[in-house]
């Protein structure tokens, strides 16, 4: 069953249960809002924390994101999945929280993403530590592209920068990760 179409660009089907939940949220039904929050809170908090690397900033970003989600859920058109729509709001909101910390590097031509050799096995704990130690801008682009699976174009659109910038940031992020992992003694 599809969410009521107000645009013929709706392409994702939404289950009847989800449709009821969304309509409840649109109507301001607190139970429906709580249900939606409970479903996505941990995943979205994880995303907020990975980007901000600060529990308090992540809490504030999560809170602000869901306020925005509930106030704007009537605009959800099923042009993406509900989760993807929510995630895009969380990313934009979290970006606003960290924007001041990000210093965009001068554009540097990264013609082709250099592939990196990550050895035979990479410990997730060390990798998490290395990711959290990255500068905010690098960390954000790395998390969005490598962990969340967004394309450079999507990230560039969300952050309001060029794809050249995101490619450059990702390149530097990976290079710094290698340095960090080497310093931790886990890089080949």
């Amino acid at each position: 069953m599809m969410v009521k179409r107000q645009s013929d660009r709706s392409v994702y089907s939404v289950s009847e249960q989800d449709q009821q939940m969304i309509q409840g949220c649109v109507a301001g039904d607190r139970l429906a809002q709580k249900k939606l929050y409970d479903r996505y809170k941990d995943a979205m908090y994880t995303l907020c924390f990975r980007i901000t690397n600060d529990p308090e900033a992540a809490q504030d970003a999560l809170q602000e994101s869901f306020i925005g989600i509930f106030r704007g859920i009537h605009l959800f058109r099923a042009e993406s999945t509900l989760g993807a729509w929510i995630k895009s709001i969380v990313v934009r909101t979290t970006y606003r929280h960290v924007r001041r910390q990000i210093q965009h590097e001068p554009l540097e031509q990264v013609s082709r993403e250099e592939s990196a050799d990550w050895g035979h096995e990479l410990d997730a704990g060390y990798l998490a530590e290395a990711i959290q130690s990255l500068p905010t801008g690098y960390r954000m682009v790395f998390v969005l592209i490598e962990v969340e699976g967004y394309s450079h174009k999507e990230v560039a659109t969300m952050l309001g920068v060029s794809t050249g910038t995101t490619k450059s940031q990702l390149f530097h992020a990976k290079r710094q990760l290698q340095f960090k992992l080497k310093a931790l003694g886990v890089y080949p």
Binding site: T46, A124, G125, L127, A128
Partner: peptide, 9 residues
């Protein structure tokens, strides 16, 4: 593989 095992919060 390591990215899939990153901690969740």
């Amino acid at each position: 593989d390591a990215l899939k095992k990153l901690p969740l919060y």
